[in-house]
Amino acid sequence: MSMLMNRIKPNAFSIATAALLAIAIMLLSVPLAFAQPDLDVNTPSILVIKKSLSQRFAALTPHLDAGAVGLTADGLIAIRDASAASAVAATHTLVEKLVADDNQDRASLYREIARANGRADWENDIKTTFGERFINRAQSGWYYRDSAGKWIKKP
């Protein structure tokens, strides 16, 4: 038995070889470890919020077109020019409610996406990233408020 143990007893050389092999395997597995799947934006609660935002969009569009409402850099919307709302025959209160409801949904959306992907701490980053994409994809003529607070009309 002791003879057998002596035969399979690892010497320093085999330990070194095994350790170097382990390092090689680890280095090769680094890209796999850092590969991340797409963010999940289709959980039941996110679908409900998206439906609500989508349904409200038709009511918001005339105000976005008229410049009464604009997008903000932090992923929300805001009243830009209340007088422009009268041009689309809407009371200020109605526009305020639309904006408040939409912002509530947007805040819930960012929170739910962060939560659904197991990273509640990403909420602010998600908010900012969505804000940028909303502005990038806004229609020509719509207004957006940049991070310095300046309203800009998309050409």
């Binding site: 998206k50 989508s54 969009f57 569009t61 994409r133 502005i135 990038n136 994809r137 806004a138 020509s140």
Partner: peptide, 29 residues
């Protein structure tokens, strides 16, 4: 996150409302 945002925008804004801007053009607001 940019890809996820585009998916969400596609879902909530009709195709006619959203301008198609590739993620690679994304810039800070």
């Amino acid at each position: 996150a940019q890809k996820a945002a585009d998916k969400v925008i596609d879902d909530i804004w009709p195709a006619s409302a959203a301008a198609k801007v590739p993620v690679s053009m994304s810039v800070s607001s």
